[in-house]
Structures are given as C-alpha cells and as structure tokens.
Amino acid sequence: MSKVSPCLWFNGEAEEAAKFYVSLLPDSRIETIQKNVIDSPGGKAGTVLVVEFTLAGQRFMALNGGMKMEYTHAVSFRIDCVDQAEVDRLWDALLANGGTAEQCGWLRDRYGVAWQIVPTVVGQYFGGPDAAAAARVMQAVLGMIKLDVEGLRRAYEGKKAA
C-alpha cells in the first residue's frame, strides 16, 4: 500500500533536527541514516544526506539539500496535546535555542519549521453544539500566543478571564 510522508529540507542539520524531534514525543525514533556516497549538492562523501525517522508514529524524512530553504505557513505540523503541561513542555522545547513564538499557538523552531501546539480540547470546543461558545473560544485563541487550556475553558463557559 502506498504511504505519504513529509520530507523536511535542511542545510546540514538533518540528523541534528531528526534527533531533536524524536526526543520530544513517544513512538518516535530514528529509522535509518543514509550518507552521501559521493560529493553532491547535499554534502561531501560520507556526510549525512537523508535521515528517515518516525515522529509520534508518522514517518518523516529529513534531507540535507545543500542550501538553505525557507519554510512557510503553507505547511505546518500540529501536535495535539492532552493538557497544559504537555503544551508547555513542547512549546518550551520547540522554542529553545532560537525558535520564535507566533500567534494562536503557532511557533517556528530553531530550524524554521512551523508547528501548531494545540490542546485537544480546542477541537471539542470548536466542534461542539454551542456556536456562541465556539465563537468565544475563537476570540480567545486569536488573542493568545501560546494556547492556555484554562483560558480557553473559561471562554467556552462564558466566564471572564481570571
């Protein structure tokens, strides 16, 4: 059966990035590391060309493509978090060493990859039967950088911020 998996482009940091990502989530591991067999745009012979890894059960590939390529918001990786502690842990880890926080639970890690760190409850609030509550949650999300589970709950219930 055919499978689809993302390929992330790096300029020499593919192995470092893959090791970092797999350290963050369960069911994650490095699968294979392929080296350049000749000098190529991806690097000198013997250097890492491709790292295949599994991140939270999803296969990825990291490629050292030989030049810096910019990521856009057209593609991002969403991590559903069970609670605020998980949001905080992943947020802090992905921002460490040069990441940048953005609006609505988005951030860019030190490699420029865009991530959405989202409490699972957001989907429940947006998909629930109370449209007014969902609208309040959307307003709350739009006003946040890192998403705050308690603040979202209060918005859903129509309570003022503490």
Rank of each mutant, 00 (worst) to 15 (best):
G57S: 09
F53H: 00
G99D: 12
G57M: 03
T120F: 09
T54F: 13
Q124H: 08
G46K: 00
S23Q: 07
G105M: 02
E102D: 14
E157A: 14
E70V: 05
Y156A: 15
I38N: 11
K160P: 10
M69V: 10
N97P: 03
I79S: 09
L152C: 05
P119Q: 06
P129F: 03
G57I: 01
T72L: 07
A140E: 15
A17H: 05
A114K: 00
Q103N: 13
C81Y: 07
Q124P: 02
V50E: 14
V48E: 14
M138S: 12
D27M: 01
S2H: 06
H73W: 02
C81N: 04
A161R: 02
V149E: 15
V4T: 14
A18S: 14
E70T: 04
L152D: 11
K146P: 14
V37C: 05
K159R: 13
E86I: 00
A45F: 02
N97M: 01
G43K: 02
I38L: 10
G128W: 05
G143N: 12
C7V: 11
D92T: 13
R59Y: 09
T72Q: 11
L8F: 09
M61C: 12
G112W: 07
I117K: 01
W106L: 05
G57V: 02
T100D: 15
I145A: 14
K3S: 15
M138P: 01
V50G: 04
Y71I: 02
G98Y: 08
K68S: 14
A132R: 03
W9T: 01
W106E: 09
R136N: 14
M138D: 14
V50Y: 12
D39T: 00
A132Q: 13
E157N: 10
K68T: 13
V87N: 07
S2A: 13
G128E: 08
V149F: 09
Q139K: 12
G12Q: 11
D88A: 05
R154M: 07
K160C: 02
K3M: 12
Q103H: 11
M1R: 03
Q84P: 06
I30V: 12
R136H: 06
Y21P: 08
Y156H: 14
Y111Q: 04
T47C: 13
A140I: 03
Y21A: 07
A134Q: 03
G99L: 02
M61S: 12
V82Y: 05
A56G: 10
C81G: 09
A162P: 13
Q84S: 06
G43D: 12
S28L: 06
A131Y: 02
K19I: 01
